[in-house]
Nucleic acid binder design. Structure first.
Length: 411
DNA sequence: TTTTGAGTTGTTCGA
DNA sequence: GTCGAACAACTCAAA
């Protein structure tokens, strides 16, 4: 549709100043944008809108990121939902996907000063540590649509059961594309519906998938209502929780060196690819918060820095869910057992073997708890606990009991 | 206003 | 080995 992208960094200036400068330089008559939902963001956008309107510039904003705007999904009494299931029912009933609007006839200003993308050095060069990322993702709208098609051809038909299996590629892998707005949930909704129309046997699977897509909306609803979702406990009772600060534990977790194969596999997958399977996110999250009693905000920070799909709503909402401090959160006594989760969702140990290759020759029986392996099995697999692979940094049973006790004190 | 049923994802223990 | 109950109590949402 023509026009150049103008890149400017704020540095010491405010977003408002930058927008005003560009609008002035380009002699713009109209300004359009997609809405954001964190309270501090909506505040800035509101200011900019007011400022520009005063100068008789037409400002129009759109929903580009969500199925429904947060203020439109309400309970019968007009309050926002705090529980996902009724939220989903309500959204499903009222939602009408909107087709892409035709592009208005716009004239673009030319010769507006722009910074160079290369100068931002977003892509690492020396050293280029992003090889793992490049291998897995093709940024952009085309890459997103290609990924959706691949999911329809492969993962969707067994989505309901296999989406929990990190050893299989049964999830959509759309999270980074959604996060950066390279594909919209409206598009996904319509595409999934038409796939279900073509093939009625996919009905259940399709709805299960769309339900997950709706979780993004739910998280954004919480963000919209919240006062700093990534810093403050949704449930303020957790303000009194006695989190332990232990840098050695935190580092071991970040590097995938906890001695629990399922946890380490997840953390290494994250580091190498920028992504982690959803089931494994719960396992590593539960481990950080409950086994290590480390503040969920430290986990949220790390995910924010390392995940390619981290966004301002899902990341904090999900961490608060795991920690138990969130809306509709996990009950305090739900403490994931990394061994049984591994046996259940990575039954052949393929996922662990891929990301923790130093254990790859261990028999499947011991792959999720190498410390239980007899000496000769360890030796023939070239595993020396404490040397080639860490011993568990905490004991599961004791850690579990400590967590239950700590959570009981808070409740 | 009051009541009622339900709430993403689990683990452990004892029969 | 399998299965049901306990793990708490609370808040939410709708009837």
């Amino acid at each position: 549709m023509g026009g150049d992208i103008i890149l400017r960094r704020c540095n010491h200036k405010s977003t408002r100043q930058i927008v005003e400068e560009v609008v002035e330089e380009a002699c713009s008559e109209k300004v359009f944008w997609n809405r954001r939902y964190a309270p501090d963001q909506t505040e800035i956008d509101k200011e900019i809108k007011a400022q520009l309107s005063e100068k008789d510039i037409e400002v129009t904003s759109f929903n580009g990121a969500l199925l429904c705007e947060p203020w439109t999904v309400k309970t019968n009494s007009g309050d926002p939902y705090k529980v996902f299931t009724p939220f989903w029912k309500s959204l499903k009933d009222q939602f009408v996907p909107s087709h892409p609007k035709s592009i208005p006839d716009l004239k673009f200003a030319e010769g507006i000063k722009s910074e160079k993308l290369e100068d931002w050095e977003l892509h690492p060069t020396k050293p280029d540590w992003s090889g793992g990322l490049d291998k897995f993702w093709s940024p952009g709208e085309d890459g997103a649509k290609e990924q959706l098609k691949e999911f329809f051809d492969a993962g969707l038909k067994s989505y309901k059961t296999d989406r929990d299996r990190p050893d299989k590629a049964a999830t959509s892998f759309l999270s980074p594309y959604l996060s950066f707005g390279e594909i919209s949930p409206h598009f996904i909704w319509m595409a999934t519906q038409s796939r279900m129309d073509e093939d009625g046997s996919l009905e259940d699977q399709g709805w299960a998938f769309l339900r997950e897509i709706a979780w993004r909306d739910f998280s954004h609803n919480l963000l919209y209502q919240s006062d700093c979702l990534h810093k403050k406990n949704w449930n303020r009772r957790f303000d009194a929780f006695d989190w332990q600060s232990n840098d050695a534990y935190l580092t071991a977790w970040q590097k995938g060196q906890t001695g629990y194969p399922m946890v380490d596999a997840g953390m290494r997958q994250l580091w190498q690819t920028g992504w982690m399977h959803n089931r494994v996110r719960m396992i590593v999250g539960s481990f950080l918060v409950k086994h290590l009693l480390i503040d969920w905000r430290d986990g949220e920070d790390w995910f924010w820095d390392t995940l390619v799909d981290a966004d301002t709503a899902n990341n904090p909402a999900s961490w608060q869910w795991v920690a138990g401090s969130g809306a509709d959160a996990a009950p305090y006594f739900r403490i994931f057992n990394p061994m049984s989760q591994g046996e259940k969702f990575d039954p052949n140990g393929d996922y662990v073997r891929e990301w923790v290759p130093e254990l790859k020759d261990l028999p499947t029986k011991y792959i999720h708890e190498p410390w239980e392996a007899p000496k000769e099995k360890l030796r023939s697999a070239n595993v020396t606990l404490g040397e080639t692979y860490p011993k568990p940094i905490v004991q599961h049973k004791a850690a579990r009991e400590a967590a239950l006790e700590a959570y009981e004190r808070t409740g």
